[in-house]
């Protein structure tokens, strides 16, 4: 067991880890940041996506030791400083981009990664970028709309149910 330090959501943190501790378990169990989810645990579903040094990675498929000293952003770091929802989170809420919410942390993190690289993506570019993030509730349509809205595109509002 060794102590691993990194910077998570702007805060220097450290916790104990084994050689085989995955980044996702370090975040969830070591730091109690349980917003990052483990869905498939086989790098298919993307519920565990976080940003490591500014790029999206599947935290279930990276060792905590490899993230030592890195700058990490998780879903807990996506709200505005005053605690209100960030732009992407708010758009997911406004456009019903979630139902059960299990995939949402990963969806928000991959959306943030996309919009950083491509601030005005087409619908097809959004759908391509979601290739490694699986949602079993929404059929993706409202997730795509939410990301379009977060990009500042004019998206028809979703009818209230």
């Amino acid at each position: 067991m060794t102590t691993i330090s990194m910077r998570v959501n702007g805060k220097d943190v450290s916790a104990a880890a084994e050689g085989n501790t995955l980044l996702v378990n370090f975040l969830r169990e070591g730091l109690r940041l349980t917003g990052t989810h483990v869905g498939c645990d086989t790098s298919q579903c993307g519920a565990c996506v976080v940003h490591v040094d500014g790029v999206a990675v599947k935290s279930c498929t990276m060792f905590a030791a490899d993230a030592e000293g890195a700058e990490i952003t998780t879903i807990e770091g996506m709200a505005n400083p005053d605690g209100s929802l960030g732009t992407i989170q708010q758009a997911f809420r406004d456009y019903h981009g979630l139902q059960c919410g299990f995939c949402t942390p990963g969806m928000v993190m991959i959306a943030a990664d996309l919009l950083k690289n491509n601030p005005d993506p087409s619908e097809q570019e959004i759908r391509d970028y979601l290739e490694g993030n699986i949602c079993r509730c929404t059929g993706y349509h409202n997730i795509v709309k939410a990301i379009q809205a977060a990009a500042g595109q004019n998206v028809p509002s979703v009818a209230a149910g």
Partner: peptide, 9 residues
């Protein structure tokens, strides 16, 4: 290859 998150690692 794979998906964006996989391509970053």
């Amino acid at each position: 290859i794979g998906d964006p998150s996989v391509r970053n690692r």
